[in-house]
Amino acid sequence: MRNISIVAKVVGVALVMAASSQVMAESKPAAASVTVKNTFELVVAKPLAFGTVRISADPAGTKLATVVVPADVSIAPSATTAAPAAAQILTPGEPGEVTVAGVAAFSNLKIVFPSAAVDLVPAKAAPGSPAFTMNTFEAFITSGTNASKKYAAGTVELTADSEGAAGFNFGATLSTSAVATTQAYQDVEYSGSFPIEVTY
């Protein structure tokens, strides 16, 4: 009986020692998440308008008359005649306006205009009638740290504000047709579309 008690005590102590020195290990699941949003809102709040012009093309398509609408609203639109092509502004045009929202706060954005000229044509045109071409796009920043400056890729960037918004105006140069034609421009609206790309 006494032996049993001793055995029990020894085993008991051994168990306590074993329990106290036992290392418990377990794995618990956890999770993490992230959301990617590479897109943002870009709205052309106002299209670029060259106004109303009196204009004629060089029948040979050699000389080009131009109408310039600067992106900076403080600079008036101008027309340049190159006889026999001629251009005269009747009602001045206005630069287009673009607003950007939902971008990363204070991020620098690049503006990419078409590298090739864009044609402006009437809704209905007679065969061989002249069109306009639009090129030399430019942007004028209207918000952020570089507000009131002409955009220059790599040097004067479009910068988003603390709310992730930015804005700029854009202008371009309208030229008469460089294609030989015997027809005159019609008294109608000429229009064209082109992409404006804003990227990080």
Binding site: A25, E26, S27, P29, A30, A32, S33, T35, K37
Partner: peptide, 24 residues
């Protein structure tokens, strides 16, 4: 969280990572 840096495209969606914590 690290990107792949491999030039591929990330979809606009939610990404989840499940991992385990070993507790001893």
């Amino acid at each position: 969280l690290k990107t792949s840096g491999a030039g591929g495209y990330y979809l606009n969606t939610e990404y989840k990572a499940v991992f385990y914590l070993d507790v001893t």
